[in-house]
Design a protein around this nucleic acid. Sequence first.
DNA 1: CTGAAACCTTGATCTGGATCAAGGTCATTT
DNA 2: AAATGACCTTGATCCAGATCAAGGTTTCAG
Lengths: 195, 195
Amino acid sequence: MADPQQALCAHFDRYLALDEAERTALKERSRVRRLKKRGFILQEGEVCRSYTYVVEGCMRMYEVDEKGVEHNLQFAQENEWIVDIGSFHTEKPSSLFIEALEACVVVCIEHADLLHLYTQHPKFDRNFRVIIEDLFVELQQRLLRRNASNAEQRYAHFVQHHPGLAARVPNVHVASYLGVTPEFLSRLRAKTSKR
Amino acid sequence: MADPQQALCAHFDRYLALDEAERTALKERSRVRRLKKRGFILQEGEVCRSYTYVVEGCMRMYEVDEKGVEHNLQFAQENEWIVDIGSFHTEKPSSLFIEALEACVVVCIEHADLLHLYTQHPKFDRNFRVIIEDLFVELQQRLLRRNASNAEQRYAHFVQHHPGLAARVPNVHVASYLGVTPEFLSRLRAKTSKR
DNA sequence: CTGAAACCTTGATCTGGATCAAGGTCATTT
DNA sequence: AAATGACCTTGATCCAGATCAAGGTTTCAG
């Protein structure tokens, strides 16, 4: 398998491409980790120490409410980021969990390292700005959909726009991501599959 | 009333403070606009041409679904930004409306001008990155709350965290922002006020 | 191989919030 | 000062989706 850090460089190249110095800095300031299925890189009460880039595998970020019910906020597959940005920047305890849904290979950048990259190589400011803007737009649309569409429409949208995830992730997690119970999602699936 | 562009400079100074050259550039590349109540700066089908910073007044951004129902995505009061980032960057038609809820004074930065600021003065990359990160965190928490809390809890949270808005904005709009009908919000208010 | 845990489904029932309908109070316009 | 439209409330009814309960299948650690 190719070099995970190389994959990360390639990811940035899709924005404003990195030069040699920036690549080197990025490799020095990041670290490859291998996670096994059901491994956590963040648990409630801990500070989220790193921006995590998924090179291989699939992860989820979720919150557990006072009744003990999990609420999936985000999935991350190959070439996607996962991090509790709030906790990362304030260095305060997170209320979220980040868990590997499969064995994963990820690249992590810790707080001090990212600050270093930002100040030494302003291109990272630029690239992360653009990356987060895109994520922001996506999130806005999810919130709009949550308010403007019913469960059936939201599920249909999910399957259409994330067929990979729909096939890869247990339906319990999809249900939680969409904001419905697993039972109700099961009924929706039964209904739509017989068409 | 003070210079609106000065207010915008002061806003940036709360992040990485601007130097003289950056202030000058910002003033050259932005434009003050006055809007009257119910004036639009964006309508469905148009491209969102500018990042808008509210100096005085209050605005909302919303979508209209196929049944004609409005869904408020965001409010912006004094010292807050409002923009359809997706449409702004892609320069494709927006599906959103941005409307003044009161007479407003705003400062606008158009696409070409913002690009200019980004490339000539990288500090804007940095500052907007941080601004959007903060907005992103807020939005994530709204989505989590939407899925994890009921209408009563969401309304209580809104009143507690945005007392200004709750007093300023008609309840119809608050209801839509929270994802409930105005009728139901009215009942919630009746219930909680008699405690 | 075996047992426990994770996952999916289906049925019966319940409920938070939507929908429909009507009337009442303000502001703003004419 | 009347009239229009925006806003809020309250009642009656309905329904999308939750909850509770049970059984069945797959997965995987020991």
